[in-house]
Design a protein around this nucleic acid. Structure first.
Lengths: 231, 231
DNA sequence: GCCGCACTGTAAGCTCCCTTACAGATCCAC
DNA sequence: GTGGATCTGTAAGGGAGCTTACAGTGCGGC
């Protein structure tokens, strides 16, 4: 990671707090974490910074403590497909931490972020030392797996409009989704910007959503769910 | 599972052998497995039998010892999308074994099979008791995750012909793929049978493969790889 | 050997999304 | 407030794959 490290004294204390704040470490006591937290890096990076690229091998697992990030792949002709948004306090990158298969995606901070980094050996030692940690990790991976399969099914079976309806259902907080351009939404759905605009307007025409600049408000949750269900 | 159990004495011995044969259990001694293998079910089922359906909660993890199986989802209008073929000696179902999210897919034996079944609590106890087991499980899940993401990328970016080329590369053993109809291939690629036929004929016309009834022979591996790479 | 069935080949029309192109709208920086 | 940049709206043309329909072919069972 080419972003700035924060190796000051108070930051060391912060790091422990950060780790404890994650669901992954919730079963571990500070004493159990102690032998590890020296090797765990903490760094900040600004919005837009790509902190992981395909082929990098050093770090194995990231804990996004503050900010936001997204994981995406890029097609040969430069198209971007975002397959996961990472909210604060969640871990990612775990799929590469043990197996030899490399992570073939980019990770980019979409807001100024604070990120803890665990090495492959750190993760292995944690698993072997604390079964509770392994259990949590497997739980998290299982959830991701189910999500990935759901997304696969949606891409295989559904057209854009239902896929968009599904996406809005998942992402809206309080019936509101802000901060995403049509471009961003297209990259999440695997379609072009114009197609995203078209699909949004379909939902608007059906009276299910209101659309503002970088801002979508869901009016009819039930109706949206209906569209999401159909093929 | 509604298939026949095999609770005879000699079968009990076999079961231990079966478990040891899987990569997942390779680090465990027979003594370590002993307390578990009474609760582990072993069953046979015939080709075509669907032994797992969405919503079933009892079993958490399957070990396919002999035979073959496939995992698929079904669209509202009845289309089938096979997202994983399970070869003998591998485990599956692990994604649901801990988390609360249910497996939303069907599992069907595609050949007469012998399947060991572990309950959710069995798996949890194994993880907590034997960190080596957890490590292996995480390794396997990581590989599956990478596969799933690759498949997602392919669906989002590639048209049928490159996707088929990619599939043939992965599935061919010794340049030969037998036992799959065009229908089966279509279900793996997420397209209709006619489209699978069309894509196969494109590859044949390009001189990359020979096509027989339920039988595909790869002639030009390099050329196939080239097609697989392009968008 | 014959029949039925599953598998394969082919083709026309249609839909969805891509592609390209452009114009208006909104926001931000200076 | 002016200019540039980003975001959004719109529309025409084309291609990939779906849908439907049907014909030919090899295989297995009796």
């Amino acid at each position: 990671m080419s972003s700035r490290r924060v190796p000051t004294a108070e930051a060391e204390g912060l790091k422990l707090t950060y780790l404890k704040g994650s669901e992954l470490f919730q079963d571990l006591t500070p004493e159990q974490l102690e032998p590890f937290h020296h090797t765990i890096q903490m760094a900040t990076c600004r919005a837009g910074h790509v902190f992981y690229r395909p082929g990098e091998t050093g770090e194995a697992m990231f804990l996004l403590k503050e900010g936001a990030a997204q994981l995406y792949r890029v097609s040969p002709d430069g198209r971007k497909f975002v397959f996961a948004d990472v909210p604060a306090s969640s871990i990612f990158g775990e799929m590469a931490c043990i197996g030899q298969a490399m992570y073939e995606c980019f990770a980019e901070a979409t807001a100024d972020s604070v990120i803890c980094t665990l090495s492959r050996t750190d993760v292995q030692r944690l698993i072997l030392a604390y079964p509770q940690f392994a259990l949590r990790l497997i739980e998290v991976m299982g959830k991701r797996m189910v999500q990935a399969e759901r997304q696969l099914e949606a891409l295989a079976f559904k057209t854009v409009v239902p896929r968009l309806a599904d996406f809005l259902q998942r992402e809206c907080r309080g019936g509101l989704l802000e901060g995403l351009s049509h471009q961003d939404i297209g990259e999440r759905l695997g379609v072009h910007r114009e197609t995203a605009t078209y699909a949004l307007n379909e939902l608007k025409a059906a009276g299910l959503v209101e659309i503002g600049r970088r801002r979508i408000r869901v009016i009819d949750t039930e109706g949206l769910a209906g569209i999401a269900r159909e093929g």
